[in-house]
Every structure is written in C-alpha cells, then in structure tokens.
Amino acid sequence: MSRIGVADRPATDAPQPLLRERWQGHIDGKPVDLFTIANAAGMTVRATNWGAKIMQILVPDRHGRFGDVALGYDSLGDAQTGQPSMGAFIGRYANRIAAGQFCLDGQRYPLSRNDGPHHLHGGTKGSRFRVFDAEQVDGATLRLRYRYADGEEGYPGNLDSEVEYHVSAANELVISYSAQSDRSTVVNFTSHVFFNLRGDDGDILDHRLTIHADAITPVDGTMLPTGEIRPVRGTAFDFTVPMGVGTRIDEDDTQLVQADGYDINYVLRPRNEAVAAVARLADPQSGRVMDILTTAPGLQFYSGNRLSGAVPRDRGKSGRLYGRRDGLCLEPQHFPDSPNHPHFPSTLLRPGQRYTGRIVYRFGIDRAPTDRTGA
C-alpha cells in the first residue's frame, strides 16, 4: 500500500467542491457555515457546524484520481430535509438507550423517546440538530464546541463538549473529542459518516471489510442489546479475516433479518495502544483503503439498509438518490444501552473528570487491481 503525493496528483478529475454559499444561514438564531480543511497532498474534508456534519471527503484512487467517499448533501436546505445522522457527530449519547431511561446514583432519568419506545442518538434534538460554535484553527483543522444544557433531552449536567477535525499529512481524518460535566452523567460520542470508497458509483456490497473483534452484542426485535456477548466465529458476523460486505448479508440469521443487513455493535479486542487499528475497509475497484483506529471499546457496523432513494430524504450530492446499501457506517463508540448493562464498559462521567476519545479514518491505496468480492 502506498500514498499519493502532490507529484502524483492529476490536475483534473476531482469532484465538484460543495459551494460554501449554499450552506450559509441561521438555525436557532446561530450562524451556520461550511468549512474546508485539507492537506498538501490534496485530501480535502468539508463539514458544516450544523450537527458538526462531514459532507465531503476527497481522496485519490489507485490512479491518482480524486473521488468523494462520503455521502452527503449539496446544501443546508437539503441536509435539513435529509437523513439527520448523515455525516453527523453524535451526542450526548450515540446509539440507543432502552425505554428512554437510565438510573444513576439511585435516581431515574427519563429521556426523550425518538425511536419507538427508545432513545436514539441523543434524542429528539440531539447534536445532529444543534449548531456548534466553530473555529477554523488552520487550513487543516476545524474545532467545534457545543454545551449540552442540564436537563437537555433529559440528561443531567451541563456538558461542555469539543470535537476537532484534522486532516493529517498521512491522509488521515483525525477526529478528537472531549467533554466535562458539572454533574454526574453518561456520555458516548461517535462519528456517523456514511462511506462509499468507490465514490458516487453503486453500492458497497463488494467492499471488503476486516474487523478486529471476536464477538458482538446481539439485539432484540427493537434493536436493543440483550446483554449477551456472542462470539462471531462461524457466523455471518465474522469479519476477522477480509470478507465482502455482501457475501453473507442476506443469510437467514435473525440479527440480519430484523435489521435488513448489518446494524450491530462489535466488541473490539483489547489493545495495548491508546489509539489502535480496529478495522479496515477496502474497495477492490478503486483501490482505496480505509483503516479505522480508535480509543473506543466498540464499533457499530451499519450497512446502509434504510437508505431507500426517497425524496427528499435520500437526495444527495449532484441530485443522486442514495439507495439501499449505497453507503456504510463504521462508528467507533461505547456499546449501545451501556447505562442499563453494568457489565458493559462504563460511560459514566463524574464532575472533575474529562471524557476523551479519538477516531482516525486513514486513507491509502492498494495498487494491485483485483476483482475479489468474497472469501
């Protein structure tokens, strides 16, 4: 695997950049804008401070042609009528909390319920719908801040949060985040970018995926963890060796059937490094490879099952309709519903403590053409 440098980069063939003026406006009385960060080799990321949403990631293929590997929207208006999680930074609590409640220090905290009887991705107006304060630190770095108010969506504590997006010289999108609270609370952040390493060209079923995890946390019919830690060996969930995403996605497995594909948390193997590689995604056609590194104990793999080409929700960049499985998410995070499962890694944050984490999406090239799509 090798990297593309300035000398290798063609002068043309890059996708059209998003237009900043189409992202400027006000939501809840706060200014919204589009920000661009890039490195000297040409890797470029564009994000809006509404929901801290990443809307474009430009990286080269094996021929040096730049492609857009993130699903997203052309304008703020399109994003507002689109999928709320598309590209978003998720808080105060990523994923689901059962029955919209948890107990902490003997007190029950009822949360907003926005996924049937459950609480999902921070609630009815979680971070996906909030305007972050933005600071363009330099040409490669964007810093975003948001204060979750005490009682917002039902959570205790004023939670001051910060997320930083940085494009490194090594063609990495580095997402660093932190938070502090004045009351005991629970916190679980993640990034919800939808990836297609081929760019705007078809589904992700022949992408090859590796996940360094030997178990999953299976879910019930409402997509809530049962509490079981289930080994993946010999099942359709085994990605311990590279496997095509579509190879076993339609097997008659209850976990696959009820989600219409993959939508499951992986229990990542213990690592010695603070930030360690936990997964790899590769597209045989373009040669693009993405390594995922993180500090988190879990990885939610979602295969884009509920993308449906619906208008306006799935009308993406350049008018493309995002259909079923046209993108996938690999979301490093704590386990879903952790506050209600004491044996899961804790998401408890006490006053005086600092919650920190990092996600790295590292892009590279496999120069050898291949048509491998399965085992």
Rank of each mutant, 00 (worst) to 15 (best):
G25P: 01
D314H: 14
A296R: 03
Y148Q: 13
L281K: 10
G157V: 08
S127R: 01
G126W: 02
G374K: 08
A47P: 04
N39R: 10
V289L: 14
K317F: 09
F363V: 06
G123C: 13
R108S: 09
F237T: 01
T254E: 15
S181R: 12
T48W: 11
R9P: 01
V245S: 08
L18T: 02
F129T: 01
V163L: 14
K125Q: 12
G202N: 07
R354L: 13
S127G: 05
H341I: 02
P332G: 05
T44N: 06
V360K: 09
N272Q: 09
V219D: 03
I365N: 08
V6P: 00
D150A: 08
F195H: 12
Y146C: 09
L330I: 02
R147V: 13
M86W: 04
G319D: 03
Q255P: 09
G327C: 03
M55T: 05
L321F: 08
R233V: 07
T240W: 03
Y109F: 15
D115K: 06
R248H: 15
D260F: 10
L349R: 02
F129G: 01
R350M: 15
Y177Q: 10
G151E: 06
I249W: 12
V187H: 03
I27D: 02
L144A: 04
L144N: 02
H341D: 07
R358G: 00
H166Q: 15
D33Q: 05
T124H: 00
D314Y: 02
V245C: 06
A282L: 10
V6D: 01
T124E: 11
E331G: 11
D13S: 13
S168K: 08
S178R: 15
R147L: 15
A296G: 01
F102V: 03
C329W: 09
I359H: 07
H119T: 04
R113M: 05
S318Q: 10
P31N: 08
N305F: 04
I175V: 15
D252S: 13
A70N: 06
G91C: 09
L34R: 05
R108P: 00
R108Q: 08
R65F: 02
H166S: 11
R358N: 01
A277G: 11
N188P: 02
T44A: 05
E273V: 05
A7G: 00
L197N: 03
G116C: 12
A70Q: 02
D203C: 13
I359W: 00
D200Q: 11
D314P: 04
E228L: 06
V193D: 13
Y322L: 13
Q300H: 15
R65T: 11
M55W: 05
G5D: 11
G5V: 05
P110K: 00
P231F: 07
P84A: 12
T294N: 06
I4Y: 09
R315T: 12
G374I: 00
N158S: 14
Y109M: 04
S127V: 02
T185Q: 09
S2H: 14
R208G: 11
A70V: 14
L34V: 05
L142E: 07
M86E: 07
L76N: 02
Q300Y: 10
N196L: 13
Y148S: 14
G309Y: 13
A276L: 09
T36N: 01
S127E: 03
R350T: 01
H341K: 06
R313H: 07
M43Q: 13
L328M: 15
A282I: 00
P242V: 11
H212E: 14
L71N: 02
